[in-house]
Nucleic acid binder design. Structure first.
Length: 641
RNA sequence: GCUGCUGUAGCUCAGUCGGUAGAGCAACUGAUUCGUAAUCAGUAGGUCGGAGGUUCAAGUCCUCUCAGCAGCACCA
């Protein structure tokens, strides 16, 4: 008979099998009421689960980390129940909890409208109020298949069919609704509470396969407390405000228009940022012993055939015609071009590692649905480089790269970087020994750099393993920025070689690497990270000098001159407007420093400085202010030197 | 690319039952010289994304198309 060990180490002995709920009730009625599920020897179970042997047991309540996912999953079932009650012709398929809520995929001819969503949500509240008991049932797989065949639900039949014939499956029933589900679930629908909301409906392919039918996915979110829900919704609103597409327009950084979808028109202010970032990167690359090059925008198809891109990447390549039937392709990548430079002349082992960098403008014909502001475009510039090296140098080059990348990310204000490690895919080039070596080298590079990686099994490129450096945007979307890829294949295909110590000809390894990824995406991420309030060194306009009356304009102009002479991006706002109007306007434009000049400042040779976001201002002697501002706007890599 | 939604002034949006287009902000002009997040007054601004159709009449209804948005798929 079971001995139950509780989290505090206490043991309870029973002379008969008990349910998790029995144990909870034994501990106290409050706990029995609060319990949503339990954890049996670490695994989540229903409260109704019968325990027959010795085990450790912990109750899961709203305080538990897993509890939110649990009620969200419950909520998905309530959503499905509501949909079936309102639209009986609908087929339910799959509905899990996800990071910020849950969804359920439905098959139904007619699309769900916004009004439908409101009606469904209302019905969901009613179902919660009904407090339907949620019960678990164990069926044989064959029973389940027969059930769904009879109901003519092919999607469910497919799910159950995938399970081995002699196994059992579990169903969860609440009211008249029953669904194939692993569980666990809370004991009744009332446990969900009312702090939930349906967010949107959108298409989603059945089983994530674009060749299969499209279902309608209804997204929702749920919390334990109403105020948690409203906090989440407020957070979404705030995130929307820092959307780079809105800010890019509002701050006059760039625009995109119909005639050039997926390409950016950089306005003077946006281009100032762009150039500042490019200059910074150039300094960092110089310091890290990279050599910068520039390769052709269009290259004959024959080179892309050799490199393998024509085969594997043709759909995404733009082409142009010339001289009759000659086909040129706009480069989607810089690597083949770099190999052409590498191949000029003979390379000695003494020249390796050779680090070749390019701010390479690439064109890729991305699917229309993939385009997103300046984050995902068809014309973009990579801070690309290829390191030609020996296999033995992969490790040290990888480390140096990770260090450089982290240092650069830090300079831009990103400390929290997630790294995905993609190892060997099913179909690949190169033998296992080489892969072992490459993977080990990449791993040691990340370890040395102090990076935590998550494994992305089998997601490596066919030519080698890769690291992907991922940042998350304001709206919670992940964007891949940096990458480090080990490549044994391209040097072979494009016949790159070097002369080894013993005089033999050898293949170099190519490390493909980017830090920012694309200039466009990087700037988009920066805008969202800072909500448009760029660090002073990146701000398009760093200082505005605003005279309070005409009488002091000449002194204000002098202040402007002083700053401009030191390379400060400074403007004089001598318009006939009140100082409060100017302060508001330049604050809205997110200028980091506003200098107000009045009679007092003119007389004393001072300035009144106001920092963006501050309510107050300080009066500083002009000389001191100039040197302070110069320090403030100095790019991070040039500070203290 | 797929599903759904959206497209009206530089921006944010309103526009009823089909009856010939409206607000705020921005812009421009004038007045105001005013010490830290919007001074007042006036003026101008639109082939209603594009093409076709229905109608006496289309921003409004229908078809096609382009673009944007959300999600899915894609991102070597």
């Amino acid at each position: 008979m079971p001995v139950i060990t509780l989290p505090d180490g206490a043991k309870r002995q029973y002379d008969h099998p008990v349910t998790a709920l029995d144990v909870a009730a034994d501990i106290g009625p409050g706990l029995a009421k609060a319990a949503l599920a339990a954890r049996l020897d670490g695994a989540l179970i229903d409260l109704s689960h019968v325990i027959e042997t010795d085990a450790t047991l912990a109750m899961v309540t709203a305080k538990d980390d897993d509890a939110l996912a649990l009620i969200r999953h419950d909520c998905a079932h309530v959503l499905a129940e509501a949909v079936l009650e309102l639209y009986p012709e609908t087929q339910v398929t799959i509905g899990p909890s996800i990071d910020n809520g849950f969804y359920y995929d439905f098959y139904r001819e007619a699309p769900f409208s916004a009004d439908d969503l409101a009606a469904i949500e209302t019905r969901m509240h009613a179902i919660v109020d009904r407090d339907e008991v949620i019960t678990r049932e164990v069926w044989t797989r064959d029973e389940a298949v027969a059930f769904y065949r009879k109901n003519d639900e092919p999607f469910k039949v497919e799910l159950v069919d995938a399970i081995p014939a002699n196994e059992t499956v579990t169903f969860y029933r609440q009211g008249d609704f029953i669904d194939l589900c692993r569980g666990p679930h809370a004991p009744s629908t009332a446990k969900i509470g009312h702090a939930f909301k349906l967010m949107s409906v959108a298409g989603a392919y059945w089983r994530g396969d674009s060749n299969r039918p499209m279902l309608q996915r209804i997204y929702g979110t749920a919390f334990f407390q109403e105020k948690e829900l409203s906090a989440y919704l407020t957070m979404l609103e705030e995130a929307e405000k820092r959307d780079h597409r809105k800010l890019g327009k509002a701050l006059e950084l760039f625009h995109i228009q119909e005639e050039a979808t997926g390409s950016v028109f950089w306005h003077p202010k946006g281009w100032t940022m762009y150039r500042e970032i490019e200059s910074y990167m150039r300094r960092r690359l110089d310091a890290a012993n990279y050599q910068e090059v520039k390769t052709p925008q269009m290259i004959d198809r024959s080179l892309w055939e050799k490199s393998g891109h024509w085969d594997k990447f043709r759909e995404n390549m733009f082409t142009a015609e010339s001289e009759g039937d000659r086909i040129l392709a706009l480069k989607p990548m810089n690597c083949p071009g770099h190999v052409q430079i590498y191949r000029q002349g003979i390379t000695s082992y003494r020249d390796l590692p050779l680090r070749m960098a390019e701010f390479g403008s690439c064109h890729r014909n991305e699917p229309s649905g993939a385009l997103h502001g300046i984050m995902r475009v068809r014309a973009f510039t990579q801070d690309d480089a290829h390191i030609f090296c020996t296999e033995d140098q992969i490790d040290s080059e990888g480390r140096a790269f990770c260090d450089l990348l982290l240092d650069i990310y830090r300079d831009f204000g990103f400390d929290d970087v997630r790294v995905k490690f993609s190892d060997r895919p099913e179909t690949r080039a190169g033998d296992d020994a080489t892969w072992d070596k490459a993977e080990a080298a990449l791993e040691s590079a990340t370890n040395a750099a102090g990076l935590d990686t998550t494994l992305n099994p089998g997601e490596g490129a066919f030519y080698g393993p890769k690291l992907e450096f991922v940042l998350r945007d304001a709206i919670g979307r992940d964007w891949q920025c940096g990458t480090l890829q080990v490549d044994f294949v391209l040097p072979e295909r494009l016949d790159a070689e070097y002369v080894a110590e013993d005089g033999s000809r050898q293949r170099p390894v190519m490390l493909h690497r980017a830090i920012l990824g694309s200039m466009e995406r990087w700037i988009g991420i920066l805008i969202e990270q800072y909500a448009g309030r760029m660090p002073p060194w990146l701000a398009p306009v760093q200082v505005v000098v605003a005279p309070i009356t005409d009488a002091v304009t000449s002194y204000a102009a002098e202040v402007r001159e002083r700053l401009a002479a030191h390379g400060v991006r400074v403007q004089l706002d001598s318009r006939n407007e009140k100082i409060s109007y100017k302060v508001r306007e330049h604050s809205v434009a997110k200028v980091p420093f506003i200098i107000a000049i009045g009679e007092r400042e003119q007389q004393d040779g001072t300035i009144a400085l106001r920092r963006l976001g501050d309510k107050n201002q300080e009066t500083i002697a002009l000389d001191a202010a100039v040197s302070m501002l110069i320090e403030e706007i100095t790019p991070p890599d040039l500070k203290n030197s």
